Amino acid sequence: MGSSGHLLVAGADPALPARARSRLAELEALWSRFRADSELCRLNAAQGRWVTLSPPTMALVQRAVRAWEVTGGLFDPTVLPALEAAGYTRSFEVPPSEPPPESPSGARPRRAPGCAGIEIGDDRVWLPPGVRLDLGGIGKGYAADLVAEELLAAGAAGACVNLGGDVRAAGAAPGADAWVIAVEDEAHPGSDLAWLALARGAVATSTRLRRRWRRGGQELHHLIDPVSGAPADTSLATVTVVAAETHWAEVLAKAALIAGPSAGAALLEAHGVAGLLVTEDGTALRAGPWERFERWIPNCGGTSPVPAG
């Protein structure tokens, strides 16, 4: 899914971690927009026609459309053409020596069409002409949710799944009463902004400091403002959210970053989640019950921190 991951499984059949890795590879094959044979690419290529999808993809599309609705369009999975216009046309897994992404010839930013015209049946989806989906803003989180829940259902006592900084903690933490998750300082790699303690739940970080590139002397990033169709012009550098589910934390972190400091904090408060919003100059704004989860003591019951960001 274009990022590294960590998987911790407690009190389970030794074969479960390998099964979980296989499951993640399966989900990547379904949802990648960089694989021509993925279900997502097949759906995007069939605009104006119904497409039957697997249960995981159906569930993900439903959640993406719902996220668009409840965030007032701040989270918008229909920004794919705008992403491509900005130059994000290939996976960031390409070697660093490769040249930076370039915009398709003549491409210009344009407002995202939104999800209003998308039709969803029991096992199929219809996209209006001109609408294509990017599920990258919710897919890693939903994959972490699915795998953590499936590990518990398969007999694991506890599981912690971290996909590119989107973390789901479920069940019992080994040797402790909480999972300890380190939130990396994106402006200073190798340093942490905070350590969080969760008995269960999720943490996700959205940042414009990672997937970025320069074109024509201008720095661009992958977080698109659905209204302008251009990379979001915001003073926020990162937003970290604590919620019950990873895909929801991921959605709200992105929506809050696009909204900006005040509106972003208000959005998190309105949805009853905890958040840490960090501006370009390093100012940190806490939203919701953030202090309830924050821990700064390195040794917390013997559990090693899992980097989240």
Rank of each mutant, 00 (worst) to 15 (best):
W68E: 03
R292T: 12
I181N: 05
W31L: 11
S304V: 10
R49A: 14
A85M: 06
S103D: 07
R124Q: 10
A20H: 04
A169P: 09
A182H: 10
G141A: 02
L146P: 02
L267Y: 06
L277H: 09
G2D: 15
A255L: 02
A287F: 02
E245K: 12
G165S: 04
E291K: 09
D177E: 15
L220H: 13
P305D: 01
E39I: 05
G114I: 00
W179R: 05
V125I: 15
F75P: 00
A170S: 14
N299Q: 13
R90I: 00
D192K: 07
P289H: 01
R286I: 08
V241E: 03
P261G: 06
S262Y: 07
A284W: 13
T71K: 04
T283L: 15
W68L: 00
G201A: 01
A18C: 06
R286H: 13
P100L: 09
L30N: 07
P305G: 04
A266S: 10
R200W: 05
A25P: 00
C41I: 06
A172T: 12
F34Q: 06
G155K: 01
T57S: 11
F293A: 01
A182F: 07
Q62M: 11
G11D: 15
A308C: 12
L40Y: 09
L276P: 00
N299F: 11
G158I: 08
A243M: 03
I297A: 14
W50G: 13
G171Q: 10
S103R: 15
R63T: 11
M1Y: 10
A159Y: 05
A274C: 01
R19V: 12
S91A: 09
V167R: 03
R21H: 13
L209M: 11
A287P: 01
L146E: 13
R200F: 02
L7T: 10
P189C: 04
A284Q: 14
E184R: 12
D225K: 03
P109C: 07
E150L: 05
G301I: 02
L151C: 09
R214M: 09
A18Q: 11
P305K: 01
L40C: 07
G217H: 13
P307D: 04
V183L: 15
E280P: 02
R124Y: 06
G175R: 08
G141N: 04
V131W: 01
D233I: 09
T283R: 15
N44I: 03
A237M: 10
P128M: 08
S22W: 00
W290M: 04
A202F: 02
G72A: 09
T89V: 15
S38L: 06
W195F: 14
F34Y: 15
T240D: 03
A284V: 14
A256D: 07
G301E: 04
R124T: 06
D177V: 09
G2N: 14
G48A: 10
G216H: 03
P96K: 02
A270T: 05
L43P: 03
L236A: 04
D123H: 14
A249M: 05
L268E: 08
A270K: 12
S54T: 11
R21P: 02
R292A: 15
S262Q: 13
E250R: 02
R23W: 00
L30D: 10
L223P: 02
R111F: 06
A46N: 05
I224H: 08
